[in-house]
Design a binder for these strands. Sequence first.
DNA 1: CTGAATTCTTGCAGTCACTGCACTAGAGTG
DNA 2: CACTCTAGTGCAGTGACTGCAAGAATTCAG
Lengths: 189, 189
Amino acid sequence: MDQGGAGLRERKKERIREAIEMAALDLFEQRGFDGTTLEDVAAAADIAPRTFFHYFPSKEDVVLSDYGRRLGRIAEVLADAPAGDPPVRALRAAFSEVARDYEDNRVILLRRFRIMMGSPSVPRLIAGAALAAMRTALRLWVADGGRTSLPELVYRAFDTFESGLAGIEDRPVPTPTGKATRGKPRRRK
Amino acid sequence: MDQGGAGLRERKKERIREAIEMAALDLFEQRGFDGTTLEDVAAAADIAPRTFFHYFPSKEDVVLSDYGRRLGRIAEVLADAPAGDPPVRALRAAFSEVARDYEDNRVILLRRFRIMMGSPSVPRLIAGAALAAMRTALRLWVADGGRTSLPELVYRAFDTFESGLAGIEDRPVPTPTGKATRGKPRRRK
DNA sequence: CTGAATTCTTGCAGTCACTGCACTAGAGTG
DNA sequence: CACTCTAGTGCAGTGACTGCAAGAATTCAG
């Protein structure tokens, strides 16, 4: 009986995973991402703090895991893309594909989206996007040995950016402060 | 005498700041960003660990501070932009402006660039850029109450992205793994 | 059904980024 | 030479995250 979930073990695991996700999302909404500690989440999910890391590699991943999983999906789709296709086109196809799944999970995704927008991480991503254009130009500049005019390259990068996003992105641009997001990022070896 | 640098105090401060920056960049190149602790940097710069945070808000900022400062510059330029200008155009102008300064600091910037490319933070930014397109579409979707087809919106976002970046970005797209960067990010209230 | 192999969960101790607080030494000022 | 202000520092603490090893539950052999 129960051919859907394999063994007791796996079902249990799935249940815990969901418990963590739910607890975390609830708390993040109530107290904010940074105002919630791992201990809070663990307590709410009724697990030991240490156990959390058997399910998610980091606190952030509870919110982003979906993206992670979907990006995994994207990797597959990308693999199927015609070899000649320009990478951005392949990416677009992949994301579009995944987007369909989004519509099936409207509620939880909107929720996640709201958390992301309320978290300082988002400004970070926005800044990241802007810097990406900058870095693209920089990369060209480096590859070029610094011969071509950087301002020219940057101008071109943003030019394309502008023509591209104009129709989609039209709300006021948040003033870049240079602070971006990070509160206390930690990294290791 | 010495009308360039104000008082002894300010000159000292500037010297320390540079010492930190140099020490950090050296160590990051040698041992990698994550393989270098704040203590290492402080020791190399001959300051107390605590003092580091009087100069940079975070470890990351030693590498990114330049962007930070330049973004500050950008804010100014943005303020001067004609009111009617679309935001992206204003941004472009600002970045182009700042880019000129880049060419004057070629060496240190190329160095910084190399560190960034070798650090896991970069994949993160790249992922951020891709997600930015996705989120732009998502925002529209949310604003729209989920009525318009998400795949359609995503498709359009990437379409513009493609047309925009095609001429600039043409190296193979790194396979998204979903892991992105974060080692041990820390945030607080 | 029972004992072994496997897999979790958890606690413990430790690392490291980062913060608030309080103290001290030295620079700027009159 | 006081007097103020501030930057450098030490200390204690928070919180994310890790490796390790013990203990509990699950699956698997026999």
